[in-house]
């Protein structure tokens, strides 16, 4: 899976995943309980709802050196808070196009829906995001250098 460049440098993508506690976090849990294999590149942050995610969190993650950010919540219609994910969907659509507009790779920030019963979908999603981020390489654009 690893391409040659990352093999040579030893670089592994670091991906921050914001998962809603009711669906996607439970989906991740199910993937684990079901012993499904996916890359160890993601760092999960559990949030109450995808509607809780401020776009600033995503930018902050990129600034602090995340190579990619994954946001996942309940499928539309399944939100524990009825419509949190539907309001979030509008925010994410805007953020995604704004970041792409200023020239940040589309692969860096990804959004998806994962329900509590979709362990397989979660594992496949993570594998796809890792692969996407691996393809575009280490993030540098918004990273704040250490001093």
């Amino acid at each position: 899976m690893m391409d040659q460049a990352s093999q040579a440098s030893g670089w592994e993508p670091k991906i921050v995943a914001f998962l809603c506690t009711w669906c996607s976090y439970a989906g991740a849990d199910l993937a684990g309980v079901s012993r499904l294999q996916y890359g160890p590149n993601i760092r999960i942050i559990r949030v109450p709802c995808s509607g809780r995610i401020n776009p600033l969190y995503i930018l902050k993650a990129l600034q602090n050196g995340a190579d990619g950010v994954l946001v996942a919540g309940c499928h539309p219609g399944d939100c524990h808070y009825i419509s949190g994910n539907l309001v979030a969907r509008r925010k994410f659509a805007l953020l995604k196009s704004l970041l792409s507009y200023v020239g940040i790779e589309e692969e860096r920030v990804q959004f998806s829906w994962v329900s509590a019963s979709e362990g397989g979908r979660f594992a496949a999603l993570v594998a796809k995001v890792i692969e996407d981020v691996r393809r575009v390489g280490p993030a540098g654009k918004l990273v704040k250098p250490c001093r």
Binding site: S83, L86, R89, R90, A93, L94, F111, L125
Partner: peptide, 18 residues
């Protein structure tokens, strides 16, 4: 205001499908 509301049919073209 558009970000305080939603429509069921809002576009989903940006969603990653595994």
């Amino acid at each position: 205001p558009p970000l305080s509301t939603f429509k069921e049919g809002d576009g989903e073209g940006f969603i990653t499908e595994p």
